[in-house]
């Protein structure tokens, strides 16, 4: 497809979305030094402490607020702001100072830092860690003695939500994935069966080119899938992959596309139809549930347990859904945010 001027702005938007994805795995914003914006609870005698390591970013705040609200009845909660430049000794000092029964790690950067702290401190003796807002935590976490809540909304949740909004049947959902995500996709396929959803997966090399992506998509669309599920994999969401891989195929074959980033649902470009993301405030409540479970179990954890997020928010391209997929008008109020 020849690049024309009218594609520049929407591609820039999509490129920005890709950059935001990439930002999940690297430093985001500088954090003010000092006490920061996150006050904890007052210290109370006889209360165990939960230590929360977090960056100072907008998406962290609703999680922090609800988590603190829920924990404050039975725990003291302290925050340690993590900057892109933070070193493992910040973690070590905070743990030495607060002797937490449990730590919470918010965001990829924080989780990676904590893993470096453990690597430098040596094995054993760590408080249990609860990992949140971290990309593909089931695949990439190197933190010992940790449990987590996945950031990616499971396909079963996204697709069954999509079914409530459109009359077009959704039975077979296609996904293109790099080889590194095979385990994740297999797990999602197993979860999806409870809702009688079949996940049709096509693997591409870990360094797949836009052309290889296009070929995989063509094969998927040719196998009569009812929807496409786009993984939050920034390697397949570069501007080139979107322009030369995704868009040409989606222009030929209108299927609803489920994405994990709201900014990928935009009227400017026919890419995402339906975005499903975790409800961040409810995520804090769910994380508190995990910590209370830990407490009931004397802080002995089922290491490696990764829960799925329970609560989601949705964004739908109502106009496109109406034209192509049979949008159910009675769901208009529930549609939540819609693409602009």
């Amino acid at each position: 497809m020849a690049m024309t001027r009218r594609w520049l702005r929407p591609l820039a938007l999509l490129g920005l979305a890709g950059a935001l994805l990439g930002a999940c795995s690297r430093a985001q914003v500088d954090v003010r030094s000092g006490a920061g914006e996150f006050g904890g609870t007052p210290r109370r005698a006889g209360f165990d402490t939960v230590l929360v390591f977090l960056p100072n970013t907008p998406r962290v705040r609703p999680v922090w607020t609800s988590l603190t609200d829920e924990l404050s009845e039975e725990f003291d909660v302290e925050a340690v702001e993590i900057a892109p430049s933070s070193r493992p000794d910040v973690v070590a000092a905070a743990i030495a100072r607060h002797s937490p029964r449990c730590v919470v790690l918010l965001d990829n950067t924080t989780t990676a830092l904590y893993a470096r702290y453990q690597a430098s401190a040596g094995p054993g003796g760590y408080p249990p860690a609860v990992i949140l807002l971290t990309s593909f935590v089931d695949l990439y976490s190197e933190v010992e003695d940790a449990v987590g809540i996945a950031y990616e909304v499971p396909l079963v949740t996204s697709a069954s939500n999509l079914r409530t909004f459109i009359s077009r049947p959704i039975e077979r959902v296609g996904v293109v994935h790099r080889s590194a995500f095979a385990g994740h996709v297999k797990h999602q396929a197993a979860l999806a069966r409870v809702e009688k959803l079949e996940l049709v997966a096509t693997a591409v090399p870990d360094d797949a080119t836009p052309r290889e992506l296009a070929a995989a998509l063509s094969s998927l669309l040719g196998s009569n899938v009812d929807a496409l599920w786009v993984l939050n994999d920034n390697a397949l969401l570069t501007p080139e992959h979107i322009r030369l891989g995704w868009l040409p195929l989606l222009a030929k074959d209108a299927v609803p596309t489920i994405v994990g980033i709201p900014s990928l649902v935009t009227r400017d470009v026919a890419f995402g139809t339906f975005a499903v993301v975790p409800d961040l405030s409810a995520l804090g409540v769910q994380a508190a549930n995990v910590i209370y479970d830990l407490k009931d179990n004397d802080f002995v954890l089922e290491a490696g347990r990764i829960d799925q997020p329970l609560s989601v928010e949705t964004v739908i391209d109502v106009e496109r859904a109406r034209v192509d997929f049979g949008f159910k008008e009675e769901m208009r109020e529930e549609a939540g945010a819609v693409s602009r």
């Binding site: 979860l191 409800d279 329970l310 609560s311």
Partner: peptide, 17 residues
């Protein structure tokens, strides 16, 4: 297990929690 929306009761059943 507390949730914040009626819709969130469904994943508790889907995931057998």
């Amino acid at each position: 297990t507390p949730v914040t929306k009626v819709a969130d009761l469904l994943p508790l059943l889907q995931f057998d929690k």
